[in-house]
Design a protein around this nucleic acid. Structure first.
Lengths: 215, 215
DNA sequence: TTGCCAAATGTCATAATCTGCCATATTGTG
DNA sequence: CACAATATGGCAGATTATGACATTTGGCAA
C-alpha cells in the first residue's frame, strides 16, 4: 500500500524543511478548499496566500502557476507509487504487472476519495482545468513505460509499441477516472480500473503470446 | 481526401463572412509565423494584432485565448475529416474503419506538413503548450467514438469499452505524431499512424471475434 | 439612392496572473 | 556571537483576458 504522510521524509533534519513542507501543504489544502467553495476563477492567488498567511509572492515560489497547486498532491502520489513499485518486481505476466500498478494508483485515490472527488468537481466546473488534468494524468505514462519495457526485453519491440501500450493503459485509467467521478464514488476506483483494463486484456495476451512463441 | 479551402464554404453569401474568414485566417497564420520566428512567449497578442492590422480586442473576439489560435487549423481539419467520414460508411471491419479514419487525419497532416512541423516545433519549445496540444489531440476521441460504437451495436458493449478503445486509438495517434515530429518528416505521417495502429491490431481482432461468435 | 438595423471593430478601463529585483527576516553553523 | 545560506515580503512591471461603450461597416428594404 501507498503511504503518503509517513514514508516521504525519513530524516526530519531541520526546522527549515519542516516549515517548508508545512507551508506547501497548507497552501495546497487551502487552495483546494477555496476552489471547492467559491470556484477556481473566483479564487485569486492573493486570497489563497492571505488565507494561509503568506505573501502572494511566496505562493509562486512553491508552485509555478495557479493551476499546479491543484495537482500537487497528484505528484506526491506518483512519487509514492513509483517507490512502492520499485521495491520488488516479481516475475509475473505483463498484464498482471500493469494491473497491479494501476490498481495501486487507484487505491491511492480510494484512500483519499473525498479529496479527489473535490478535485474532480473543481476540474469539471472549469473547462480550462480539463487540459491541465489531462496533462497530469499523462504523467503516469512515464511510470508505466519502464514496467512494460522490462517485460519486452526478450523480443525485438519498437519504442512505438511500448508507447502505444502505455498510452492505452493511461487511456483506460482516464476512462475509469471519468466513470468513477460520474458515479459519485458508489464504486471503488480500483474496480473501475480493473474493468477498464480488462478491455486491454486481449492486447496484452497477444503481446505475451508473441513473446512466448519466440524460441 | 480532405480538402480544406474549397469545400468549407459553398455559399459565398456576402462580404461580411468573406472578410471574417479572411481576418481569422490572417490572424492565425500571422500568429504561427511570429511564434516560429520569435517564440511563443516573446510574441504578444498586441504584436499579432498589430501585424495583421486589427485591434488586440478583435483578436480575442476570434479566439478565446492566445493558445487557441495555434490550434485553430486543427479544428478545421477535424471538421473536414468528420464531413468526409460521414458521407459513406462501408460495412468493413472495425479495424479497417478506424485505420481509414486515422489515415485520413494523417493525410491531412501530410498535405500541410510544413505547417504542422512548424506547429510541432513551437509546441516543443514551450512546455506549457504540450498540455494544450494534448487536449487538442484528444478532441479526436469524439470523432472515433461513433465509428467504434457503430461496429459494436450488435453485441452488448459497455460505454467503458468504447471509451477505452477510442482512447487507445488516440494514444496510437499521439505516438505516431511524436515520432513523426521527431523524425523530421522523413516518413509520411500516414505510415507512422499505420505502424502505431498495428499494435492495437490484436485488440480489434479480439473484439471482432467476440462479435462474430455471437449467435 | 437613402435610411435604418445589425454586425464588426475600436477604445478605454480593469482585474488577475506571473516575473524580476531588492530589502528583510529566519535558520544553520563555526 | 558572528556569518553565510535560505526563505520571505514588498513592489513595479509586462502580459493575458474581459466588460462597457462608442464608432464604423455591411446588408437590406422603402
Amino acid at each position: 500500500m501507498v503511504k503518503l504522510s509517513h514514508c516521504a521524509k525519513q530524516p526530519e533534519v531541520g526546522l527549515r524543511e519542516y516549515k517548508r513542507d508545512r507551508t506547501r501543504r497548507s497552501l495546497r489544502e487551502t487552495a483546494v478548499r477555496l476552489f471547492a467553495e467559491n470556484g477556481y476563477h473566483a479564487t485569486t492567488v492573493d486570497e489563497i496566500a492571505g488565507a494561509v498567511g503568506v505573501s502572494p509572492r511566496t505562493f509562486y515560489r512553491y508552485f509555478p502557476s495557479k493551476e499546479e497547486v491543484l495537482f500537487d498532491v497528484s505528484t506526491d502520489i506518483r512519487a509514492a507509487v513509483v517507490e512502492v513499485l520499485s521495491e520488488v518486481q516479481p516475475a509475473i505476466s505483463l498484464a498482471d504487472s500493469i494491473t497491479s500498478a494501476v490498481v495501486e494508483v487507484a487505491s491511492a485515490y480510494d484512500s483519499q476519495a473525498e479529496l479527489f472527488q473535490q478535485m474532480a468537481q473543481i476540474m469539471m466546473a472549469s473547462p480550462e482545468l480539463r487540459s491541465a488534468g489531462l496533462e497530469d494524468l499523462h504523467r503516469w505514462e512515464a511510470v508505466y513505460v519502464p514496467i512494460i519495457a522490462r517485460h519486452l526485453t526478450d523480443i525485438p519491440t519498437s519504442d512505438a509499441t511500448i508507447g502505444v501500450l502505455a498510452g492505452a493503459v493511461v487511456a483506460a485509467q482516464r476512462i475509469a477516472h471519468d466513470r468513477w467521478m460520474a458515479s459519485g464514488q458508489q464504486q471503488d476506483m480500483a474496480s473501475h480500473v480493473k474493468e477498464s483494463l480488462a478491455v486491454l486484456g486481449p492486447l496484452f495476451a497477444a503481446i505475451e503470446s508473441a513473446e512466448s512463441t519466440r524460441t
